[in-house]
Design a protein around this nucleic acid. Structure first.
Lengths: 142, 142
DNA sequence: CACATTTACTTGTAAAATGCAAGTAATTAT
DNA sequence: ATAATTACTTGCATTTTACAAGTAAATGTG
């Protein structure tokens, strides 16, 4: 994975260089909303990401400071993937994407509850998610 | 451009199928923040999009109901590209991406003003942008 | 009215990213 | 000691993107 030259000096453009590919935000979603934290769990996403792509995206997300690799408390064979603060701060983007989808697309029944929560109290949902994530991180690393 | 099969039933996933490629959000940004509205203007983006890719993305954005093609008031040789309401509603996502970039990346001087506005009053900025866009649309089509 | 220019594309081909199937090395469980 | 788990890698096909050039309709210019 080579360092990608900036396409321009626009904030949107270089944000997209960090997470604007086909998979990165889905990985972030899984780390964030689905409480996944190992390679194996991430590989079992609904979208069936290829394992080589998963590895490549995890590396690039790490290089971009969005996630970090830690020792897994349960086993040396596992790796603990966690969002950094920079990654956690992607929550508002993920939330807005969900809300846009809610307005314009069919949301499957099982996802409606979560999206409703976002809609009812966006700021609260974000605050809550951040707190839950951080609590889970402390739990895992202690 | 074939109809893409849904990768999953996750709202994030199928939102990304509509605008989660390397270029779509930059085109939306130009229509939205840079007041561009023709193929030629969009082709002159800082990021230097290839013309075949631009054409392909414009078609896909249209198929996804995010933009629409209209007759240009000035000339039959021109096409007027406009965001639909569905496209306009991507503003919050673009704003959040800008704010994330502001927090974690170097924003060039010439972009700082706009991003500061977003930061100072997010809701106000979004409301304003929507109003400006709609006023411009009426102006062009009357 | 002839001719150059503008505008919105398309076409051909090279390069890069993604997808699929299989394999490997270091743990860990039995 | 052996089998299973876990986190990857490797090789190759397919798809997407990039670059350079070309085209057709509409418009501007002498």
């Amino acid at each position: 994975m080579k360092t990608q030259k900036k396409r321009s000096d626009c904030p949107v453009s270089f944000s997209l260089e960090a997470f604007g590919d086909k998979w990165s935000l889905l990985i972030v979603r899984d780390l964030m909303l689905h409480k996944k934290c190992t390679y194996g769990e991430l590989a079992k996403s609904d979208e069936k990401i290829a394992t080589n792509i998963l590895a490549a995206r995890l590396l690039s997300l790490e290089e971009n400071g969005i996630i970090q690799k830690l020792e897994h408390p349960d086993s040396k064979a596992k790796v603990l993937y966690q969002l950094t603060q920079k990654g956690i701060d992607l929550i508002p983007i993920i939330v807005e994407i969900n809300l846009w989808a809610e307005k314009y697309m069919e949301i499957p029944e099982k996802r409606k509850e979560l999206v409703s929560q976002m809609n009812a109290d966006k700021e609260g949902f974000i605050r809550n998610s951040i707190n839950e994530l951080k609590a889970a991180h402390i739990e895992k690393t202690k």
